[in-house]
Design a protein around this nucleic acid. Sequence first.
DNA 1: AACTTTTTGACTTTTCCTGACCTTTGTAGC
DNA 2: GCTACAAAGGTCAGGAAAAGTCAAAAAGTT
Lengths: 156, 156
Amino acid sequence: MKPLSDDIEAFIKSLLGEDQDQVDVQRNELAGYFRCAPSQITYVLSTRFTPDRGYAIESRRGGGGFVRIVRLRKAQGDQLFYLINQRIGASVSAQDAFSIIQQLAEQGILSDRESALMQAATSARAINLPLAVKDALRASVLREMLLQVVRDQKEA
Amino acid sequence: MKPLSDDIEAFIKSLLGEDQDQVDVQRNELAGYFRCAPSQITYVLSTRFTPDRGYAIESRRGGGGFVRIVRLRKAQGDQLFYLINQRIGASVSAQDAFSIIQQLAEQGILSDRESALMQAATSARAINLPLAVKDALRASVLREMLLQVVRDQKEA
DNA sequence: AACTTTTTGACTTTTCCTGACCTTTGTAGC
DNA sequence: GCTACAAAGGTCAGGAAAAGTCAAAAAGTT
């Protein structure tokens, strides 16, 4: 017996057709449709729609809330994908972040202003935390920004 | 289902055209138009037309009363200075960061891409830390990025 | 048996919306 | 000038509508 999560995954993917790179769903509605706990939808999203599988998730709570699943176009973001999923692992030093950003700027993927902003956000000054966690947090911040770059490229 | 508040927000913004930096509305009339409780208008004003987002509200009660929505256009240097030194203190919530960044984008100080990057860097997803420290770290990250914007403006 | 993946449910947080009650202002009648 | 009433807007607590978190139980796999 195949797990329900596979069905849910397939269903969501079917909502993302050819042209559609983005879809909004309601967690409770989806859970109702599949007769499962709402948190299982969260589980599916967090295990199957991850950046390394080429997806990003955004959401809003409260009345009129939603979960948005965005398919990232791999073709345009090949290098970015590598950076997001391999190069930036669980942890990145300030120096590594610096060179990653610089490289993207040199390639024209980031403007000068954009790269300067990202340097600022990932600098040692900005992320002043205990050694044990700061490189992990930098990884998280940098990854989210790079995911944003990928999303933006998809639009253009 | 999109929340009504979004419609009301959009409607009010449409009243503020290009040249128009100020508009008066009547709370009850607006509530009648949108078929909602008058207090919802207050809700929209107090969540979407805040100083953080670059707006100010004045009002008068009684006969002939009104609510005036004013779009603030502060001198750019002063504005950033205020944000860095006063507004962003030791701690900033994700929502407040969002508002502040959005305001700067609306004023043309940040491009859409730049503001999206900053949103990503200060989002709850990027800064996933214990409650006790996450708003403090967000303040630090946001401040460093704004300082970078100032540096950039000095150059130009 | 040990391990991994799935599934659930209780609890939390965020956002939206309303209704009951309060305060301020204008005005009509004395 | 008062007083009373009407016509605004303000406040606040609370309910409803969403999504998030986390640990533990259940189900598969090796």
